[in-house]
Amino acid sequence: MSTEANQGLLAYIESERQRILDACTQCGRCLEVCHMRPYLPLETSNETAIVGQVLAVLARAPVSPDTPETKDALTWAQGCTASGVCVAACPESVNPTMMLRIARMTAFGGLGDPKLAHKPEDGDWFPRIRAFARTQLTESEQKEWM
């Protein structure tokens, strides 16, 4: 099922980053078809410029988060809900959902880059799941199934 056995996620992310940068022609089709676009507070309407700023984040180029296109690029990357319609629409098989996800990871600073956006962490995520599990599974099920 895997391609490069046990390369790890971080190495795979870096290989995808380069593949996307090599493949994308910045045509803007992915943003045109995005199902979330009507619900995102984008300031501009220039698809190619916004995609260009997503690529700049991916390329780790210096970007100014205050310019409208960069703001829009970050809003779009954070607003992606993985509808996936862009994947079929992309004429270059870029996988724009993956492009936005890696741009998001980069912008959050988790891959060692300057932080361009903030993701609030829900510290109760796992405690909440464990609390619900205690209401739904027997003790032996919790031991065997979790």
Binding site: G8, L9, L10, I13, R101, R104, M105, F108, G109, G110, L111, K119, E121, D122, W125, F126, I129, R130, A133, E141, Q142, E144, W145, M146
Partner: peptide, 26 residues
């Protein structure tokens, strides 16, 4: 054979911390 819960988390919630996501995936 049911498996799940935090000890089998996929790590998809860890976009802000891919290093942690990598460890969870492994």
């Amino acid at each position: 054979v049911p498996v799940g819960g935090p000890n089998y988390c996929c790590g998809s919630i860890k976009d802000a911390n891919p290093v942690a996501g990598d460890g969870m995936a492994k």
